[in-house]
C-alpha cells in the first residue's frame, strides 16, 4: 500500500509521541499533555497562515509582526477599558489592515512577496515600537485571559478548540472552495490560471488577508496566555512556521500543501520541544533538532526521488 506524504508524517508524529512517552519521564502525565495543548495553538495558527502563503509560491516574513501588532491593538483596547469583544475585533482589524497592505503591494503592484514582507516586517515592527515605545502592555481582564488559559467544558483547553476549528476551516477553504482551488492553481502556474479567467490579484489579496486573520487569532491567544504584549510577541515563530510548513509537505515553490501535513509538523515540533525539555536538554537544543529534522527530511526526499528515478530508468532499460 502506498501512503501519502501526509500519512507518513502522521506516523512519524505518532512515532515521536510514543518514543518520547517511553524515554521522557512524565511525558504522558495529564499535566504535561495539557501544557502541550496550551502551547501548540499559537504556533499552529501561525504555521497554517504561513502554509497558505507558501502554497501560492510566496512567503510572509511579516506574519509574526502582524500578530504582534494585532496583539497590541487588543491590548490597547483592553487597557483602555473596552470589553473583550471590541478588543478582539480591533485585533482582527489591525491584522487585516496589515494583510491588506501586503496583499495590495503583492497582488496589484506585483512585487515579489519576499521583498514586500521583508519591508513590511520592519515597517510593522516600527509601528509597534512607535506605539509601545518598546515597553510591554499588560494587565488584561480575567475574562480575556480565559481565551488562552481556560478550558472548554472544563476539560480541553479552549485555545486548542479554537485551533482545531480554524484548522478545519482552513482545510475546507483550501480544498472545497473556488478560492482555495485557485490558490493551488495559482501556486502551480499563475499565467495559466490567469488565462483561465481567474482573478489572480483577488485570489492573492484574500490569501494575505486570510493569513493575517490567522495571525490575529494566534495573537489573541498569545496575549491572553501571557497577559501581556511586546514587540517581539511570537517573533520566534517566524522561521519555525516556514520550517513547519515545509516539513509538513508544502512545496516551497507553491502549488502543493495540506493543512493536515502542517498540523502533523506542528505536533512533531511540539512533542520534541516538550520531550527534550523533560529530558533535561537545554531549550536551545530544540532549535538544533528542529533544524536538523528539516534538512534531514528534505535530503531524504531528494535521495528517495533519485532512487526512484534510477529504479525507473533501470526498469525501462531492462524492458528495452
Amino acid at each position: 500500500m502506498k501512503l501519502s506524504k501526509e500519512s507518513i508524517l502522521g506516523l512519524i508524529a505518532l512515532g515521536t509521541f510514543l518514543l518520547l512517552a517511553l524515554i521522557a519521564p512524565g511525558f504522558l502525565s495529564s499535566n504535561n499533555i495539557t501544557s502541550m495543548m496550551f502551547q501548540l495553538p499559537e504556533f499552529g495558527l501561525i504555521a497554517l497562515a504561513m502554509m497558505v502563503v507558501i502554497v501560492t509560491g510566496g512567503i510572509d516574513l511579516s506574519i509574526t509582526y502582524i500578530a504582534a501588532l494585532s496583539g497590541v491593538g487588543a491590548a490597547l483596547m483592553l487597557t483602555n477599558g473596552y470589553g473583550m469583544l471590541p478588543a478582539i475585533i480591533v485585533a482582527i482589524l489591525f491584522a487585516l489592515a496589515c494583510g491588506a497592505f501586503n496583499g495590495f503591494v503583492i497582488s496589484k503592484i506585483g512585487v515579489s512577496p519576499i521583498l514586500v514582507t521583508l519591508g513590511t516586517m520592519v515597517l510593522f515592527e516600527g509601528i509597534i515600537l512607535a506605539i509601545t515605545k518598546g515597553n510591554s502592555i499588560s494587565g488584561f481582564s480575567d475574562g480575556y485571559s480565559l481565551i488562552g488559559n481556560g478550558y472548554y467544558l472544563g476539560l480541553v483547553p479552549l485555545s486548542i478548540v479554537i485551533f482545531v476549528l480554524f484548522a478545519i476551516i482552513t482545510a475546507i477553504l483550501l480544498s472545497k472552495t473556488s478560492w482555495g482551488r485557485s490558490v493551488y492553481m495559482y501556486g502551480s502556474n499563475e499565467t495559466a490560471t490567469l488565462f483561465s479567467g481567474v482573478k489572480n490579484s483577488r485570489v492573492l489579496m484574500k490569501v494575505y488577508l486570510y493569513a493575517s486573520l490567522l495571525a490575529a487569532i494566534s495573537a489573541i491567544i498569545m496575549t491572553s496566555r501571557y497577559n501581556s504584549v511586546k514587540v517581539d510577541l511570537g517573533s520566534s515563530y517566524l522561521l519555525q512556521s516556514v520550517a513547519a510548513a515545509v516539513l509538513g509537505g508544502t512545496n516551497i515553490h507553491g502549488g502543493y500543501g495540506k493543512v493536515i501535513g502542517t498540523v502533523y509538523a506542528v505536533m512533531i515540533f511540539q512533542f520534541i520541544r516538550n520531550g527534550l525539555n523533560l529530558l533535561g536538554f537545554h531549550s536551545s537544543l530544540v532549535d538544533v533538532v528542529i533544524g536538523a529534522i528539516l534538512i534531514l527530511v528534505l535530503a531524504m526526499n531528494f535521495f528517495s526521488d533519485k532512487f526512484k528515478k534510477a529504479a525507473e530508468t533501470r526498469k525501462a532499460e531492462k524492458a528495452a
Binding site: Q240, S284, L294, I295
Partner: peptide, 23 residues
Amino acid sequence: IIEIPAIVVTLGTLNIIAGIVLY
C-alpha cells in the same frame, strides 16, 4: 548537491547554528 531550496537550507542551518551557540 542535495538541491534543497536555499531558503529552506539556510533556515535549517540558522536554527541549528543559533541553537548550538546559545547552548
